[in-house]
Structures are given as C-alpha cells and as structure tokens.
Amino acid sequence: MSERLNVSKTYKLYIGGAFPRSESGRSYTVNDAKGGFLANASRASRKDVRDAVVAARKAQPGWAARTPYNRGQILYRVAEMLQGRCGQFTDELRATGLSKSAATTEVEAAIDRWVWYAGWADKLAQVTGTANPVSGPFFNFSTPEPTGVVGIVAPDSPLLGLVSVLAPAIVTGNTTVLVASETAPLPAITLGEVLATSDLPGGVINILTGRRSELAPWLASHMDVNGLDLTGASGDLAVECEKAAAENLKRVLRPVEADQPTDWTAHPGITRMTTFLETKTVWHPVGV
C-alpha cells in the first residue's frame, strides 16, 4: 500500500468574507525559520487592493450602525474561535522560529489582547466623548464616530502584532484592509478563517498577503480610504505612503519609534483606537 500524502492548505486572500486567490494568479514561497519550504501564499496585486477597498466600503455603514454592545459581542466571539484554534496557531508560530513555550505564550497573549479590545467596544465613547459646557441654553455633546475605511500595513509580529493593530481599528466601527506581514503571512490568513467562522460580517476585515512595497502605496493613495496605519512600513516606504496619504487627508498612524521593533507585550493604551475616530458634536436646546 502506498504511503498517504499529506493534504496541505492553499493559503488564499480574505476579501469580503470569501477566500479568493489573487486576481493576478501570482503566489510566493513562504519559508520557515530554517529556510525550509512552508507554503505558497497568494501574492496580491493592486487590483486585489482595489477589490478589498470596495468590500470594506460596502461593509462599513452596516458595521458602524451596529450597537457598540453588539460589536463587542462579535469580537468576543472571535476570541472564542481563536481559543479553539490555539493548537493550529501555536504550530504556525513555531514554524516562524519560536519555541513551543514562546509560541503558546504569544497565542495566549493575542487572545487576551483581542478580548481586551472587545471590552472597549461599549466603553470608549464614555472615555472620549464629552458633555461640553456652553454659554447658552443648550446641551452640547461630543461623541466619537468611526473614521471609515482604514488601511493597515501590519507589522512582522505574526500574531500578537497582527491582532494588536487589527482589533483597535474595527472595534470602533471602522472597516479595514490589512496587508499582512510579508515574511510571516500564514497566521494572518488562518486568522481570516477564524473571522469567517465568527459572526463578523464579510468585508469588515480584508486580509491581503504579498509584497508590502507593492501594495502599501496603492492603499495609501486610494481616495476611498480614510485612515492609514503604517506600523508595518518603515524607511522610504513609510515616507512615500505618508505623502500619498496626505492627498485626501487620511488619518495616519505612524509610530514614532517606527524603525525600532515594537514591544507588543507592553500595555497598548487606547491611542490605536482613538486615532481612527472622528468627533461629532451636537447641540440640543434645553427644556424643550
């Protein structure tokens, strides 16, 4: 009897709740830490960026219109699914060179990070919103609203860094197009499978794999993208993207220490959430 052949997974993109191949048909080889073959990942093109932005824009009003409480529930659900796939993520992280214990620690930290952000869904407005004193018979409120579609260039930290940039962008009602780490894209696509089986509406998170330098500029210059997170871009690429983003006044998040590795285990604070918020102020007559 012949030996059984292992059935290995085709890593595709995650756009609009589906897993299409790149429209270009291209792929690239992903190696493990020792240089051995791991998998072929899709190498997305600018047209995949375009399609992903369309999907994100389509999903945005519906996602923002959900109650914060409901968004929080959905994010908790994602964390539950992450927990269920703990073993798979640990294996994928070990292939990037982490020891078994380090990989387990990172997966657990990632799940905890996701839960932490999920909890913010119905609390952030209380922190960033205000009742403003004004010199007239009016109630005056400022409340946060999502910026819209946010493009994210994800850092190389394959899971903890990934969820640390993704969760804060969507918890407030934004939708995202994320360019995954170029060297370790597989956990991002596996995260896509988690998202597809949670209650997250298709299009809220779209994940592309491929060359950062090829994809990020298209995302940065796209006129229908409202925010840009350049955490995973450095050097000339980050400068080029920030310039392109100025054309339609995108909110840009470019960490000051961008060219040094971020400590993803540190307490994240709320900056990543508040960067992609707009403030709406309403006046309401008193006593009517």
Binding site: V49, R50, V53, W218, S221, H222, M223, D224, V225, A244, E247, N248
Partner: peptide, 9 residues
C-alpha cells in the same frame, strides 16, 4: 491621476 478614486469626490 494614477490613483484609485473614491465616490466621495
């Protein structure tokens, strides 16, 4: 222009 346009404009 060489960049993707958005419906807002």
């Amino acid at each position: 222009t060489g960049v993707y346009a958005g419906p807002d404009y």
